Simulated scan of single mutants.
Amino acid sequence: MKLNVGGIDRVVRIAAGLGLVAWAAMGGPVWAWIGVVPLATGAIGWCPPYAIFGFNTCSVKKQG
């Protein structure tokens, strides 16, 4: 599994995910639990839709 979620993208996903999960835990709407998805993808650095569509926000230095 190759990383495809980069720095700023990861921070935004983790922040949004934590915000949604916290809102759901404090009695917010049930749909706010969807925050688990961006939280997980930000934490592991890999996003399945990015892999399917060929997106990559992870900056990798090329050798050579």
Rank of each mutant, 00 (worst) to 15 (best):
A24I: 00
K61R: 09
A22K: 08
F53M: 13
G54D: 14
L18C: 14
G27K: 01
W46F: 15
A32K: 03
C47W: 05
W23P: 07
A32M: 03
F55L: 15
G6C: 08
G45F: 09
G64W: 01
N56F: 04
W33P: 07
V37P: 08
C58D: 10
Y50D: 15
W33G: 13
M26F: 13
R10V: 08
G19F: 02
A15G: 11
P38A: 03
M26I: 09
G19M: 00
A40H: 03
G28H: 00
A15S: 11
N4V: 08
L18S: 11
W23Q: 07
I44H: 02
G28E: 02
P48F: 04
N56K: 11
K61V: 10
L18N: 12
V5R: 09
G19T: 01
A15R: 01
G42N: 04
V60P: 10
T57D: 10
A22D: 14
C47G: 11
Q63M: 08
I52F: 13
A43Q: 12
G45C: 12
N56C: 04
I8N: 04
D9K: 02
V21M: 00
K62Q: 07
G17A: 02
I52P: 15
V60M: 10
K61P: 14
K61A: 12
A15W: 00
P29T: 01
L18K: 01
G35V: 06
K61Q: 11
Q63V: 11
I34E: 01
G54A: 11
I8D: 08
G35Q: 05
W31F: 06
M1D: 15
V12F: 07
P29F: 14
G64P: 12
V30M: 08
W46G: 14
G54S: 13
Y50Q: 14
M1E: 13
A43Y: 05
F55K: 13
Q63T: 12
I8Y: 07
V36M: 08
G45T: 07
G19K: 00
I8A: 11
A22T: 09
A25S: 09
I14K: 00
P48E: 03
R13L: 10
N4L: 12
V60L: 09
V12P: 08
V11H: 01
A40F: 10
A24P: 05
L18W: 03
L20C: 05
P49M: 08
G42Q: 03
K61G: 12
W46N: 14
P48Q: 05
R10T: 04
A51Q: 11
C58A: 14
D9A: 14
D9L: 06
G28A: 02
R10D: 07
F53K: 13
A43P: 05
A43E: 02
G45S: 11
V37G: 13
G6M: 03
L3G: 14
L3R: 14
L18G: 15
A15P: 03
A25W: 12
D9W: 02
I44K: 13
A15E: 01
W23D: 12
V5L: 14
P49Q: 09
C58W: 10
V5Q: 10
F53D: 08
V21P: 01
R13N: 11
A32D: 05
G6H: 06
A51S: 15
A32G: 06
R10H: 05
A32H: 04
V60F: 07
